[in-house]
Computed example of a mutant assay.
Amino acid sequence: MNKFLKLLILFLCFFTFSTNAKNIKVINGLKILTDEYPPFTYKEKGELKGIAVEILDFMLKDISSILNLSNVDFFYWTDAVDFVSRVPNSMLFVMTRTKERENVYKWVGPVAPLRQVIFAKKGSGIEIESYKDLKKYKIGVVKDFASSTALLSNGIHLKNLVFSYTEKENLFRLYRDEIKLVAADISNFGQYKNAIFLPDDLEEVFVMNEYYLYYAFNYDTSDEIVNAFQFSFDKLKKKGIIKNINDKYLR
């Protein structure tokens, strides 16, 4: 091996090490946000738990970051969305990846599938065939959730929507007959539903969309950082860890 080739290899090794070290430093400064969204993220006796929480824990360890779950900040959803939309090097989990959001964030995942549906009290007699039928009713939605955006983009007026900070709050409104319908995510709605209603007290009357949940990064986050998380996520998926975690909570 000639002298020039040796120097080139040494330079490339040094450059790679420097780049990785720089990326790790940026990752270690990452601001990570989440909200109450069972079974993906929630607190139990002060401990952060959930599908996306366990996956994140695996990824941080795989990337060799000094960050851990104690560095995750709990926000109200609307505040978290505002923060990650404005602040570089920040990440929010989990978020529904939609057409409207596609070029607003950078994405890692998918964590799990998601069905957005409309629920009514069983026996209400409400029949929904299209978005047009929804215009007759007051619908409970969570502010800045993808379901509220979907309703507005399909011609539902603001006057039809009653905004809350959580899906649980929407259920209380439905229970008190303040609204007739609730827009909800089928993957996590059961945990709230069963806490307020008997399991058979609600019925699905309309399916809006089918999406996937992701980790959403501020758009100005470097591709190298996002790719590092996606590479780690893909490794976990290949090993079956993502499926095992989902099965643990959703079975």
Rank of each mutant, 00 (worst) to 15 (best):
G29W: 07
G29D: 14
G29R: 04
L30I: 13
K31S: 12
K31Q: 08
K31V: 09
I32E: 00
I32A: 02
L33G: 07
L33V: 06
T34E: 06
T34P: 02
T34S: 02
T34D: 03
T34K: 00
D35V: 00
D35R: 02
D35P: 00
D35W: 06
D35Y: 11
E36G: 00
E36V: 00
E36H: 06
Y37Q: 07
Y37D: 09
Y37P: 01
P38S: 04
P38K: 00
P38R: 01
P38V: 01
P38C: 08
P38N: 01
P39D: 09
P39C: 09
P39V: 13
P39E: 11
F40N: 08
F40C: 01
T41L: 03
T41Q: 02
T41I: 03
T41F: 04
T41W: 01
T41P: 01
Y42L: 05
Y42G: 05
K43W: 14
E44H: 03
E44M: 08
E44G: 01
E44F: 00
K45S: 13
G46Q: 07
E47W: 02
E47V: 13
L48S: 01
L48F: 03
L48T: 00
G50W: 13
G50H: 07
I51L: 09
I51W: 05
A52V: 08
A52M: 08
V53A: 09
V53E: 14
V53R: 07
E54S: 07
E54K: 09
I55V: 15
I55W: 06
I55H: 04
L56W: 03
L56K: 05
L56D: 12
L56T: 00
L56Y: 01
L56V: 04
L56E: 11
D57E: 12
D57A: 11
F58T: 06
F58N: 10
M59L: 15
M59E: 15
M59Q: 13
M59Y: 08
M59W: 11
L60M: 12
L60P: 07
K61W: 14
K61Q: 15
K61G: 13
K61A: 15
D62L: 12
D62R: 15
D62I: 13
I63A: 10
I63E: 09
I63V: 12
S64L: 11
S64D: 14
S64T: 08
S64V: 01
S64R: 12
S64E: 14
S64A: 10
S65A: 04
S65N: 05
S65Q: 03
S65I: 09
I66Q: 13
I66F: 11
I66Y: 14
I66N: 15
L67K: 06
L67R: 04
L67N: 03
N68S: 14
N68L: 14
L69Q: 10
L69T: 05
S70Q: 05
S70R: 04
S70P: 02
N71S: 10
N71H: 12
N71G: 10
N71F: 07
V72A: 10
V72H: 04
V72Y: 03
V72W: 07
V72R: 02
D73N: 15
D73T: 15
D73M: 12
